[in-house]
Amino acid sequence: MPLTDPTGGTCSVARTITALGDRWSLLLLREAALGTTRFSDFRDRLGIASDVLTDRLQQLVDRGVLERVAYREEGSRARTEYRLTAAGRDFQVVLGALGGWGREHLPTDPDRGVRYRDEEGRPVRVAFVGEDGRVIAPDRVAVERG
């Protein structure tokens, strides 16, 4: 079901949720970040119905977070892969924040969720960072209306 923005487009959080906030879209973006590119692999990994998958992939392409890339295996017809765009790669910070919150506040045993690491394999986390580069605790950050 499509979401509507109750703020009329003036709030960046509401715009983002309206554009990308349903569970299938978020899980598709997670899978794309993990390297999934093909329709059948998305379907199999998520257990999503084909019609829903088709709709969500189209929405993510329309919103500029995934792009279609044609490919052809020898002896087969042309097919399409779905890859993250720069905007889709930027969205991984949001998914990292969601995953971090879930690990902290909705733990499971064992937790097999996605982990994020830097290029040297060290764990990373999402945080508020001041203009000077220092990490600021969430309870030290003020939230204001724009």
Rank of each mutant, 00 (worst) to 15 (best):
M1T: 12
P2E: 13
L3A: 02
L3Q: 01
D5T: 01
P6M: 00
G9N: 07
T10M: 07
T10P: 01
T10Q: 11
T10A: 14
S12R: 12
V13G: 02
V13S: 05
V13C: 05
A14R: 05
A14F: 13
A14Y: 12
R15L: 09
R15M: 10
T16C: 14
T16G: 13
T16E: 15
I17Q: 11
I17D: 09
I17W: 14
I17P: 03
I17Y: 13
A19N: 15
A19K: 15
A19T: 15
L20I: 08
L20H: 14
L20W: 12
L20K: 11
G21A: 04
D22W: 00
W24K: 12
W24V: 14
S25C: 11
L27T: 05
L28R: 00
L28G: 02
L28F: 05
L28M: 10
E31P: 05
A32T: 09
A32L: 10
A33P: 06
T36S: 08
T36F: 07
T36P: 07
T37Q: 15
D41W: 02
R45P: 04
L46G: 03
G47F: 04
I48C: 12
I48Y: 04
A49D: 15
A49F: 04
A49C: 02
S50K: 13
D51I: 06
D51Q: 12
L53N: 00
L53M: 01
D55R: 15
D55S: 11
R56T: 07
R56L: 06
Q58I: 05
Q58S: 15
Q59V: 14
V61H: 03
R63Q: 15
G64L: 06
G64E: 07
L66W: 13
L66H: 07
E67H: 10
E67D: 14
R68P: 06
Y71N: 01
Y71C: 01
E74C: 02
R77Q: 13
A78I: 07
R79I: 00
Y82I: 02
L84P: 09
A86I: 08
A87M: 05
G88W: 07
R89G: 00
D90V: 02
D90W: 06
Q92M: 11
V93T: 14
A97C: 05
A97I: 09
G99T: 13
G100I: 09
W101P: 05
G102W: 10
E104F: 06
H105D: 01
H105S: 08
L106A: 09
L106M: 11
L106K: 06
P107W: 10
T108F: 04
D111N: 04
R112H: 14
V114L: 12
R115T: 11
Y116D: 12
R117C: 09
E119G: 02
E120V: 07
R122N: 15
P123T: 10
V124F: 07
R125A: 14
V126D: 04
A127D: 13
V129I: 11
E131F: 08
D132A: 00
D132C: 04
D132V: 00
G133V: 03
I136C: 01
P138L: 05
D139Y: 07
R140E: 15
V141Y: 04
V143E: 15
E144R: 15
R145I: 13
R145M: 13
G146C: 14
